[in-house]
Design a protein around this nucleic acid. Structure first.
Length: 260
DNA sequence: ATTCTAACA
DNA sequence: TGTTAGCA
């Protein structure tokens, strides 16, 4: 009575596909115990343990190619290095997923904040924010794809960012990105008049006029530059429209010690 | 019924 | 990686 098993039995035992076992053989990392006269592959306990080792390395994201060298001619030190490399990859992946998680939470938060108060003026508290300069534009120059392609390469995940436009009264508009620690410009902590809308880009000028009209009518003393925040990622919920939030400081700047 | 190889998406 | 075809 033969104690070896067929490829499908091995596949079921180890929870992998038959194809994958043949693939390992093709790559030279798992040979059958023997092949029957009918060309059927047969596997014994040695192969079971061998496959378990292979699958463990695969779990650690060691590439099939490396597994071959690893099991034939690697020193213990090289094996350690292989595992360290896998560990680094996994840490990078973990960080990627955490950043993705943060982004999703941000989208949900911003979307809810908008859906609760759409197209309405509000007064919002803002913490001190630093901005780093990104692109400068002439007042009425459109930002075109070519210009964006020149400048945007160095900014990863640009379209997952809150892009800040500062209208400071001069004839240039500057695009900024938020920065936690420092930047060329800071927005002071304080109360900001806020209006957020989903509109088409060409309606932005009109929206800005509306914002200033309202502020004047309500006698809000606008203290600083107009801040326009573009959150293009909120277009997830409404294609062909862009989310803008207009803000302007309405309280006097805080004391230098920040404890006004 | 199961496995084989080979080629393809 | 999964799927398919034609074969033993």
């Amino acid at each position: 009575m033969k104690s070896e098993i067929t490829i499908s039995e091995l596949a079921k035992l180890m929870n992998v596909s038959v194809h994958q076992i043949r693939y390992f053989e093709e790559k030279g990392i798992l040979q059958p115990a023997y092949t029957d006269t009918n060309q059927y592959r047969k596997y014994g306990m040695d192969q079971v343990y061998e496959l378990a080792r292979i699958l463990l390395l695969r779990k650690l994201e060691v590439p099939v190619q490396s597994i071959k060298a690893c099991m034939t001619s690697y020193s213990a030190d090289q094996q350690r290095q292989l595992l360290h490399h896998s560990l680094q990859d996994i840490e990078a992946e973990l960080q990627r997923l955490q950043e993705l998680q943060q982004f999703i939470l941000k989208v949900l938060h911003e979307e809810q904040s908008f859906s609760l108060q759409p197209n309405q003026f509000q007064v919002k508290k803002r913490d001190l924010t630093f901005l780093t300069r990104f692109i400068e534009l002439d007042s009425h120059t459109r930002l075109d794809a070519a210009r964006l392609a020149e400048e945007a390469g160095r900014v990863p995940n640009l379209f997952e960012s809150d892009i800040h436009y500062l209208y400071d009264g001069s004839n240039t508009v500057t695009l900024y990105l938020e920065s936690q620690t420092s930047g060329e410009v800071s927005l002071p902590k304080g109360d900001y008049l806020s209006l957020q809308c989903l509109i088409h880009e060409e309606e932005l000028e009109h929206l800005i006029e509306h914002f200033f009209d309202y502020a004047a009518a309500q006698s809000f003393p606008l203290q600083g530059p107009l801040v326009v925040i573009e959150r293009s990622y909120l277009s997830l919920f409404s294609p062909h429209q862009l989310h803008y939030e207009l803000q302007a400081l309405i309280t006097p700047p805080a004391n230098p010690d920040g404890r006004g």
